[in-house]
Design a protein around this nucleic acid. Structure first.
Lengths: 209, 209
DNA sequence: TGGACGACTTGATCCTGATCAAGTTTGATC
DNA sequence: GATCAAACTTGATCAGGATCAAGTCGTCCA
């Protein structure tokens, strides 16, 4: 999670956008790299047959829209209100190359953006809806903001379902099982309390005990 | 598929390895970028719970092992005998940055390596074993070498199954359906004839007519 | 305050693909 | 060629989720 240094002009301004807006669209020419300061973004791709899939979630600190291709590979839709910095991609590339010349870490930030996509592949390539839901929770709970004694959890189940390649009903039932097993608690739809992290990690790759 | 220019010393030597060998292991420190000259390689990742998954196939012309992280993200196992060039990764990065300064295409080759992984996610995020098998075929047939009136098709069904997140039995049955529908033909396990490409593309995202 | 909409919940049924269990073919080795 | 192991094939059964169909809850807005 490398924060760009030497911000100048536009890059210094903290911008804001509200839930439901889109930072950039799949297929558009890459012009800017977005650096999230707060909030949650979902990456959405449309396959050739028109199927819409959530392929990644991004959180505060993530950089998205890195021009690995001439056009964006996914649309960046705001799950929550978001504040962010916007870097023109020419400038961003210059800074990145300078960093590389200094410390050889040219490519790390690229991987950071690809990582959630890679993780999704490993996740949904395995059996068990409950495993997938538990695994997703373990992956994101350290990216969620605290809220009282728990965490803010603003992800709609419909997005979770798409990311995990199951139906929303299945996500709902999986969360219910985790609640019943007293592994998690959800006082409301957008609050999450981890009651037993160890058993959550177990549930991520084994049937519930 | 950008071929490196200005090969020098080691990079000029065409190396060979036989099926079953491994070019590099997941977790090893990135030292070289491999440029495939012929043959097929599978990318294999092990998830935390020990599950082995084929996450990508690579073919002649592909560059693999690009150091986007300090260590390799997957193991590169040879499906067939392979000939390849091996570039020390420092030299490779230098060449890539020079290319970027010239034509701005710094990052394209990085995406080329990530693309099969991304495609897999989109593929297995959708329903239907038959769809997946048909879709995989459409993706790789233009990378297979001709063989008589058909194509060489050396991918073991067990690898296809892992890549598509289904069982080998299911792959077998799907191929059988495609044969029965006279969309493809397989005179032997390692030969593939496309009888009707249009219907193959349809089968990639619709139930069989 | 009331109403409408979207998200979530719950239950009943169905179906695809996993699993289990034999076979059969293939290819490598001697 | 004979032998063996690995890959592929085929069938029968089973289970996990998808699907379909109502509900309930919450929030936003008039």
């Amino acid at each position: 999670m490398q924060i760009l240094t030497q911000r100048q002009s536009e890059s210094d301004v903290l911008l804001r956008a509200s839930a439901g807006q889109t930072l950039f669209w799949e297929g558009d020419t890459c012009t800017h790299v977005y650096e999230l300061h707060s909030g949650i973004v979902r990456g959405v791709s449309i396959s050739k047959d028109g199927e819409r899939q959530v392929t990644a979630f991004f959180f505060a600190g993530d950089q998205i829209g890195i021009p690995v291709t001439p056009t964006y590979r996914y649309s960046a839709e705001l799950v929550t209100p978001v504040s962010y910095f916007r870097h023109h991609h020419n400038r961003w590339c210059d800074v990145m190359i300078d960093n590389f010349r200094r410390d050889g870490h040219l490519l790390q930030s690229i991987w950071a953006e690809q990582d959630p996509v890679f993780r999704r592949g490993m996740l949904i390539g395995r059996n068990g809806a409950l495993n997938r839901v538990a695994a997703l929770l373990t992956l994101i709970i350290n990216r969620l903001e605290p809220c009282g004694q728990g965490l803010k959890f603003p992800l709609p189940q419909i997005d979770i379902a798409s990311y995990l390649a199951v139906t929303p009903e299945t996500v709902c039932r999986a969360l219910k099982q985790l609640r019943k097993a007293e592994i998690i608690d959800m006082p409301s739809h957008d609050r999450l309390i981890i009651r037993d992290f160890d058993r959550l990690e177990q549930a991520a790759h084994s049937p519930l005990a």
